[in-house]
Design a binder for these strands. Sequence first.
RNA 1: GGCCCUGUGGUCAAGAGGUUAAGACACCGCCCUUUCACGGCGGUAACCCGGGUUCAAUUCCCGGCAGGGUCACCA
Length: 556
Amino acid sequence: MTNKDDQKYIAGLLFGDATLTPEECEEKYPPRGVGEGVAITRLGPSPTGFIHLGNLYMAFLNAKLSAQTDGVLILRIEDTDRKREVAGAVEVLISSLAYFGVQFNEGVMYDAQADVISERGSYGPYYQSARGEIYKAFVKRLVEEGKAYPCFLSEAELTEMRSLQEQQKVTPGVYGAWARYRNATAGEVEALLAEKRPYVIRFRADEEDGTYVEAADGIRGTLRMPKNYMDVVILKSDGLPTYHFAHVVDDHLMRTTHVIRGEEWIASLPVHVALFGALGWDVPLYCHSTVLMKIDEESGNKRKLSKRKDPELSLEYYRSTGYHPQAISEYLLTIINSNFEEWRAENPDAPISAFQMSTEKMGISGILFDLEKLQDVSKEVLLRIPAGELAAFLLHWARLYDEDAYRAMSRDEEKLARILDIGRSGDKPRKDLAYAKQMRDFIAYFYDELFEKQDDWPGNAAADAGVLLAGYLETLDLADDRDTWFDKIRQLAVANGYAAKPKDYKKNPEEYKGHVGDVSSVIRIALTGRASSPDLYEIQQILGEEAVRARLAAHI
RNA sequence: GGCCCUGUGGUCAAGAGGUUAAGACACCGCCCUUUCACGGCGGUAACCCGGGUUCAAUUCCCGGCAGGGUCACCA
């Protein structure tokens, strides 16, 4: 067994150059002195340059909880894996989250306008790669106390050990008797160091003894797991901490109250609890959320969203498809707390900040992402947005994703608003606008350059199309009120052998070629290029005399 | 394989020891309507399985099974 003096000596050997002590750190990052119930949360993404809906979900959870308790949401960049780092990832991350309404009030900040990244807050640095001295202070202390030790096992040795363990059918890993450097003497360590052998720092675990650790979880009640007995790596050979260590040190020093993270972390909870214990700190309230899943095409089973396999779930997809950020937020909220929908129905106009979510109400079984539900939520959300704002939103989207549409629609924003508002007023508003791309396609025919002429008439009216349109054109007067206008269509129908009312036709189908609906379908197709559209009268009013006549004439 | 989490309609989900087991989305039908992606009405569809406790279990317990997660010098 390494003795006390050896431990001190090894710590000095390894971290003699430490510039900070644990006590200094505690002093520099004092408790925040916030009241009970205030949530200090944080998001700790690794800058790999890709975020999907699942990440947003997690970010949203953190943001919501801190916001509703007047707490703090910190952005801490967990850039301890240099191999996976992607340039520009932080900018993408922050601006994507900002687009969907997640704002940080402490940590790494990004000013998209000026393209400047900065840090805000007195608990930094907020890049883990810049916190080396802090980690060092605490690792050194752990080594001094014999709670951590340098391990010189090489990658090859580790692999070899693992296959041996597999042969023997024992749990693979560095623990117990397998932890070869656990009790190395100061002399041995010094010699290895002199050889410039690379090493990592491992956290010394207790022996496997069948006891359990428990930790409170805001979502799941109490979590109970077998105690950790693996000597996990806390400092990698490049001197950077692993997630386990960085999480514990950072969340303590940043005075995080709620650690909200995905359930994939439950398995390493015992390590974290042990680490908090070894450092003499209180454990924060963990909230292990379920992860978003989807059906895997290959196996047909559920699986969690993956960066690699699901590019269509990237936030960029939702942005480019033109989902309104508010819609995404509300969808997320409906899966976070199932009483949200009910609340929304009762408070149709309240901002979502007025909704109080609770971690206890969160579900704990895997959630399958449901695009159709998203679309429905989105329709509801868009319905509550005034046409003017909707027009601005559409334009903003088109400017980035559809130049042609932008050129056409931006000429007259007021007209665009009128178009989008068709059928949206009154007690039974149309609930059919879901996202920008669909809106664009939906209203394209209002613009000559986007309009696609079509002459796929309803079967029985095909032969008469030209005649019907010519007749319609003859009596057309945009100044007519709606009833007068439609009466004319009825007359036109009758004059050409069509029933004035669909019911008449149904009664005696053999007496007619069709009914007034067929006639207006012909007009609709000529005018809009499609078989279904909102109210024709309103469409004509917006289209204007000239365009209406031109489109009708084109088929005669 | 070990450990952990989870099993209520296709999806998201309420729910309680005794209920006709909510609701939303989707789906189907009918209606309204000049068309419709709108609206109205109605409908199909669920407690994973087996034991145990109990007068009574979908609900509590145990065991299976299924799905998920995790077992890295990645987070």
